[in-house]
Every structure is written in structure tokens, then in C-alpha cells.
Nucleic acid binder design. Structure first.
Lengths: 248, 248
DNA sequence: TCAACCAATAATGTATGCATCTTAAAGAGA
DNA sequence: TCTCTTTAAGATGCATACATTATTGGTTGA
């Protein structure tokens, strides 16, 4: 549990501050509620809290070194975002996602990413956004060409992939669309189920998708960009289903 | 302001309860936070709170007759849902939607409703859901055939339309999809901008859409159902754009 | 006259005590 | 032994006092 380190000793720090002045810890948010919310959110997404696990206020309050108030506020916010389930008088639980739920999340995301790609094509991308995409494409190519591909870190590919998609989200120029996209991806990677295939061929195919999508966007062909993007994300869904059925 | 009636005198009621036993007011939620949240949400959606308006805790606290605590929890939840914007130390504001935002909301909703229709077709609808749809279709027909159509209440058509779509949402059997759909529709009908055309021809065309969509769902033709539904919602967007440009 | 500063006011953030509810374990009765 | 009560412990709900942070209006100085 790394997420509680930052807040744990805040009480002590504040006493020190009162004694020696300044030196407020920078990496914390402006308020306890904000930093608590961030700590809990990333903790949930990182899997530090298991799906279905109960979020006890006093427990969290002690672990994070704050009173129950900011904890309660953070829990309410995360419940509003859909990360937690709440039953009155019975507390908060980490939302559980079935395999079916995760597949559906990909379907929703596919539709939304398609929309984003269409808007990016219609509105055009800024120079900075294009640079990010081109960087992601060339880095992806390098990754594919590397001699010991199989030993590569999955997280590297994840970062490259994420950069590509984020740039398009940003280019959609729509806060609402970005919010929906973020929410459709806010699912804890449940142990085995949410793991995307990482064979050389899979990555190669997805990178080719990225090239074609970017091309369509540059050509300002919104319809084609949407179609390609939707198919791209759906293909991840398919490969996920394949992995699952193979496990069974 | 009708929304504060229910809570206003709770303090008094509780004293009465202590004196005479039970008689807890039924129409209130299980907790103050829940009923406060509902009151504020419907108040925002009904336009009792204007976009951009500040939500002052003490103010609301007095109007609803509860302490600041449940108010703050409700505000946090609604902020998580995207109805309010929050800046630390500076309070909550009713989220504002530009005309562009509203148009985008329809685009997003179109994509999501399309997905829902596809799933409804693929999974099949239950008897109860089919009954609701058929009722909505025949009621819509009656509305169209009525002699003095122009004098009809818009809200009646709104209810019929809402019943049709809700049944399909329900048939999609996906909590996540339902959540996204709800969120994409949680926009206060900003005075003039978000008003959908209500001419006889418009309603006639939309009802015809509904018939075709239902047909596709009954035929289990998911692709067609999605295409039709998406076009259906997009057509509302178009007519909205038409109305706006006419005003300008 | 204007700008910067300062104080007073008001609003939000946080902690805490008490009330209420849930739950589970212990106990009584059949 | 089983079931239904009862009760006690633990957890959430709510109110309130206090701390901290914005904001506003006025004052001082140039």
C-alpha cells in the first residue's frame, strides 16, 4: 500500500509547520478531501482495494491519517463517478465488474472512441497533438522491431497506446466526450480477466490500425476515422473474448 | 421552489415523532443525504437552479432544513455525476452547457442509444418491455390522430417518447450502458436552446422511426436497429440545430 | 485618482461527539 | 436442536464548533 504514505503523517507535519514555519508538502492537493480522493481512486484502479471490498470509514481514516469527514466526501465523489457502490446505512463497496461488464465496457468505449476520432478528423488536430501521435507511432514501430520483443514490458506498450488515444480524446474538443471516455475506462484490471493479448502479431495489427486511423484523421475523413477506430477497439474486445474462452 | 417542501419541517416532525411515535414521512428517502441529493438533482434538472449559479451550503442548508453535512455530501455526489463543478475552497456551481455542448450530448446519446437498441435486438425484449413499447406506439398514434394536435401538451409526448426509450435501455441489460445514457441526458433544458421541435410533421416522423426501430428489434436485426436508432436521435440533433439557426 | 495593502466578513474545510441503524452473537423458549 | 428475541458492538448519519481560505470594501500611500 503505497498510497497512504503521503498522508499518513500529515498531522505530524502540521505540527512541525507550526513550529518551524512553511515547508508544506507539495505533492499533496490543496485540501485533504482532494488528496484523499486521488489516493482512493488510484488505489482502487491499481487494485489495492479488491472488487467487492468494503470501504470502512474509520479504517481508511486511520490509514490515511485524516478524519472521517474528508474520507466520506471522497467516497461520495467516487460513488458519483461509479467506482463505488453505496447503500444507505450500510456503507461503500468497491464496484464489481463481471466478465460481461468488461466486454460491454469495450463496446461502449468503441462507440465513444469512434465518435472522438470522427470529431478529431472533422475539427483537425493541433500541431502538438499530431506530434504526440507521430511519436507514439514511431515508438510503436521501434517496439515491434526490437530483437527481444517478447521480453518487453507490457506497460511500455500500454503507455504508447494510451498516448495515441489520449491525443485523439483531446482533439475531440469535448469535455463531455472525454468524461464519458474516462468513465468507460475506469475499471480496475481484474486480475486475469482484463488483460489484453500481447503477442507480436496482435501488437503489429493494432499498430497498423493506428496508422490507418491517423491517416483518415489527416485526410479529414470523419466517417472513415470513426469506422476504423470503432473496429480497432472492438478488435481488442474480440481478442479479450478469445483469451477468456481459451482459459475456460 | 417546490422541492424544499418535503424537507423543510423535518426537525419539527422528528419532535412530533418522539412525542407520538412513528408516522415517519414516507415520501422521504432513508437518509437526509439521499433526499437532499434527489431534491437538488431534480431542482437542477428542472431549472430551479440556473446554470452557473453558485450553490451556497448555508443557503441550501436553511432552505432544505438540514445541516450542512448532508448538503455537502449531496453536492459532492452531484459533482461526481457531472451536474456540478467544484473548485476547492471556492464552492460548487451549476454546470453550464453551451449550445455546442448540447449538440455534442445528442451525438453521444445517439451513439449510446444505438448500442442499446442493438443489444435489445440481440438479447430480445421481455414481454413487459414489449408491452410498454407497444403502448407507447399506440398512444403516440392516438396523439397524432387527435383533432386538436397543436393544443396538446408537449409533456405528454415527452412521456410517451421517454417510455419508448427507457424500455430499450432496460432491454439492453447493461447497467453501465444505462448509466452512460442517463448521464448523457442529465442536462438542464436551458431555457430556449434545448427545446425539441414539436410540429405535427416532426412528431409523425419520429413516431415512424419508433415503429421501424421496434420492428428491427423484433426481427433480431441488431445492426439495423442500431443504425435506425442512431439516425433517429441524430435527427433530433439536426432539428435542434435548425431551430437554433432559425433563432439567430 | 489609482494602486496596493489590510482588515472584516463570509464561505468552505475539517474534526469530533452523539444519534441512529445494522448486524451478529448470545440467550430464551418451544 | 432450532427458531425467535434480545442485546451489545460496530458502523454510518448528522449536527456543530472551529480552522482555514476567499472575498470584499475601505484605507493609506504615492
Amino acid at each position: 500500500m503505497a498510497f497512504n504514505r503521503g498522508l499518513q503523517e500529515r498531522g505530524v507535519k502540521m505540527v512541525l509547520d507550526a513550529q518551524y514555519g512553511k515547508v508544506l508538502n507539495e505533492n499533496e492537493g490543496p485540501t485533504r478531501t482532494v488528496s484523499t480522493t486521488e489516493a482512493l481512486r488510484s488505489g482502487i484502479l491499481a487494485g489495492d482495494f479488491k472488487p467487492g471490498e468494503r470501504m470502512l470509514e474509520v479504517n481508511l481514516s486511520e490509514r490515511l491519517g485524516v478524519s472521517r469527514t474528508p474520507i466520506r466526501e471522497a467516497l461520495k465523489l467516487l460513488a458519483g463517478e461509479g467506482l463505488l457502490d453505496h447503500t444507505p446505512n450500510r456503507g461503500y463497496y468497491v464496484r464489481e465488474y463481471s466478465t460481461e461488464d468488461i466486454v460491454q465496457a469495450y463496446e461502449i468505449r468503441a462507440a465513444l472512441e469512434g465518435l472522438a476520432a470522427r470529431r478529431a478528423a472533422q475539427l483537425g488536430m493541433e500541431q502538438a497533438e499530431r506530434a504526440i501521435i507521430e511519436r507514439a507511432l514511431s515508438d510503436g514501430q521501434k517496439l515491434l522491431n526490437s530483437d527481444d520483443f517478447s521480453s518487453m514490458d507490457r506497460s511500455l506498450y500500454g503507455q504508447i497506446n494510451s498516448a495515441f488515444h489520449s491525443a485523439i480524446h483531446s482533439a475531440s474538443r469535448s469535455r463531455m466526450l472525454r468524461d464519458h471516455l474516462r468513465q468507460s475506462q475506469q475499471i480496475a484490471p481484474s486480475s486475469h480477466r482484463n488483460v489484453v493479448a500481447f503477442e507480436h502479431d496482435d501488437v503489429k495489427r493494432r499498430l497498423a490500425d493506428h496508422y490507418r486511423i491517423y491517416e483518415a484523421i489527416l485526410c479529414r475523413d470523419g466517417g472513415r476515422a470513426e469506422l476504423l477506430m470503432r473496429g480497432h477497439v472492438e478488435s481488442v474486445k474480440i481478442s479479450l473474448l478469445r483469451t477468456i474462452s481459451r482459459q475456460a
